[in-house]
Design a protein around this nucleic acid. Sequence first.
DNA 1: GGTACTAAACACA
DNA 2: TGTGTTTAGTACC
Length: 457
Amino acid sequence: MDRSFPVSPFHLAQMPTDQRELEHTVLVQTRPSDDGMFQVKPLQPYNPCSPAELWAASRSAPQMKFYHCPGDSDLWRAIPEPYEPSSRISCGPDSTYFAPVYMDSHPISIPMISSPTAIGPQSPGLRQEACDGSLERVSDACAPWMGSRSSHSGYHDQLKMEESDSMAHINATPRTSPSPISISSYHSSPQPYSASSPVTVNMKTSASPQTTSDYGGSEDDNHTDPPYSQLIWQALMDQPDRRLPLQKIYEWFEKNTGKGRDQTQKGWQNSIRHNLSMNAGFIAVRDGSPGGKRTMNYWCLTEEAIQNGIQSTTRYRRDIKGRKPSNTTEAPIPNHPEPGRRGERPGRRSKPRSSHQDNRRPTPLHRPETLASCVQPRPITEAGAGAFPQSLPPGYPAPPMDLTGAHWPSNTYVQTFGFNDVISCTTPPHIPDQMHQYGANPSSDGSSFHYQNSGWN
DNA sequence: GGTACTAAACACA
DNA sequence: TGTGTTTAGTACC
Ligand SMILES: [Mg+2]
């Protein structure tokens, strides 16, 4: 049977993330079966447990809820809702996962948020043991920072943390603290620009209990909202295909955050664009559907961002004097072809400057270093969750499938490139327009694997 | 010192 | 005009 496999082949579920207490990861590998079911197996190299298998047979589309087994912090269960004993997922050394997953022509996305902490060689100690204890609901709340508004669009619990936590997790190295932590699932009918995520795992544990009251019940969402980067991340993660055009991101913000409340102010939109551009966890993909119409850019997440969350957007920033990155380690240094300004001087200048001068070099569209490193993330509607198939840093699991055969829809390509660990571009995309008009920095913040490799974080 | 927010210049479609 | 890129001032911790 030749059906596309609906589950991203990487990691089925990531469990809690607060590594101070928990490291739960269920790493599974999926493969299609010939009876309309699919099988999920743990990634053998890293999972010390006996294989767990997940067979999907049901036509139902349960909303999986993850439960923590009290008394054993390493154990989790995913149980479809409404609860069906016969189809629940259990975990254990010799147990089998049974999960009904609806398969239709539209791909299901069970996001793969995995913790390198638990799967890498450095942390081989993934433990899964039989669990027959009672179940404790881990999370079923709305995004705390949204307060009461959050219920409107099915918005779910997610990564709201206190400011410090938030940053800690943004900057966390994947080895030690995987980040934003949400497992959301998409099922059944496609819902473009969906704002709901039926399956959510809230990794945040006792360190900082999430309650809406933690953030004042959204008295002032602008003060309680997570950083833009996290919100954008969440907006994209909410989508089945992990992508949104800019306008839809705006809309998501208007609905789900306090940023977009003031319709008269457009600064928040500027900030969104700023974050999208400057944070390499967000990449632009142009839907180059022919027809002469204006093409639409979609913003999506790198695989790394899907798995480990988004990182700080401000990493790109240089030290003004020494032209050094603001971070002491191997922070991403903008790959400026030459020193000098690339954007423009910010506001509050003392003098307006003449508009004719522009020292910036237009981006050579076929600059070797950029073309050579073109990466095409695969849409989640394909076999995976928009993965970058470039090599992974030490400690990351090898992709559990052969990515070489993966291909993109012909009308989709990435506008952002510059990763060094890459696949080659057999057909160099038309490197569009604005995306690199200034020679977009291929190594701006968030070029994920790179920086993690270099110990940045 | 690091991060986030914000403003703004600029290019391009 | 909208979008994308970039710099930089500022606030906050
Ligand atoms: Mg970006």
